[in-house]
Structures are given as structure tokens and as C-alpha cells.
Amino acid sequence: MSAQATALHRREKSASALVEICSVRLGPGLFGVPIRHIVEIIGSARPHPVPLAPGFVGGLLHYRGDVLTTVSLRRLLGLPRVDQPMDTLILESPAGCFGLLVDSVVEVLTLPAADHEPNPSTLDDNRKDLFAGAYKLKGSLLVMLDPQRLDPIRLGAARAA
């Protein structure tokens, strides 16, 4: 999967120099999700909790006739729980859509693909699995998230293994 992702990035680099990225805030950090994986952004949702669900599951969300499982980025990254409505990104994955809960959606950035750098080798293995490199912004880094790696089914399987 990572080979595929790298290939994807390389193609992006060669095809067009610019990439559209949705930036989201989570606690103190800034993260990015490639915009072409985002189906829709839903503001201030309160997902329905699921007792006994794995920790990363943020709950259920009713979305256009389907009941979607959401992944809480906070819990995934081990940040403390906050009691406030979250913004939800509806993301596409091969197994269907799922939601990604973040503190808030900031803006859509258009960045030169050349500014992308892969994960540093010193990064924690756990994080290496979730992050897909970073873009160098002025004065800060935008850590990229790979929607395919955030798929709850994949996370569930990784957790079981």
C-alpha cells in the first residue's frame, strides 16, 4: 500500500506541480488530507457512541442513508478526549465511506508537490503507519494523513494483529 502511495505522489509531482489539500486542526497540530479523497465535510456532528467498540472508533454517523463508522483522530493519536462537537470528513475507501473526526477543518491549501517530504526515519513506527510525509509550510509543517491507512477496517485488523 505504501508503495502504491509513493507512486501516487510521484505521479502527482510529475503531472502537476500543485496539490489541493484540506488542512484540519487537532489540538495543537495541523494535519492535511488530499482533497480528492474527501466526499463531504460535515460540521459539528455528534457521533452516536458504540459501547465496546475499539478505542479509535469515534461512533456512528448517519450519512445519506448509510450508517458510517467514524474514526476519532484524537483517540487514534492518543490525545485527551474533549466534549465538543467535532467536524467530520467523509472519506472514500475501497470498502465504502467512513468518517474522520477532527477538532475543526481549517482551509483548503494549494501547495506545490515539490514541497512534500517523506516521513522521517526517526518517527515512531506507530505514527509512520498513519502519516504520509509532510508539506513544508511557512513556519510550520503540515503532516499528511493517508485516508487508506485510516480506514477503520484496516485499523481494526492492525489492532488485532
Partner: peptide, 23 residues
């Protein structure tokens, strides 16, 4: 239907939306 992750919990057979809009 529920996602496989939640089905694996083994207590729920699905989800539904109630008349008041709640899940």
C-alpha cells in the same frame, strides 16, 4: 449494515435511525 470493525464486537447485528432522527 455495520462496518466489519463493529460487527466483530459480536453484540450488534446492525444499526438503525429512529423516528426522532437518533441512531
Amino acid at each position: 449494515p455495520l462496518s466489519a470493525v463493529l460487527k466483530d464486537i459480536g453484540l450488534y447485528s446492525g444499526a438503525t435511525v429512529l423516528g426522532n432522527g437518533d441512531l
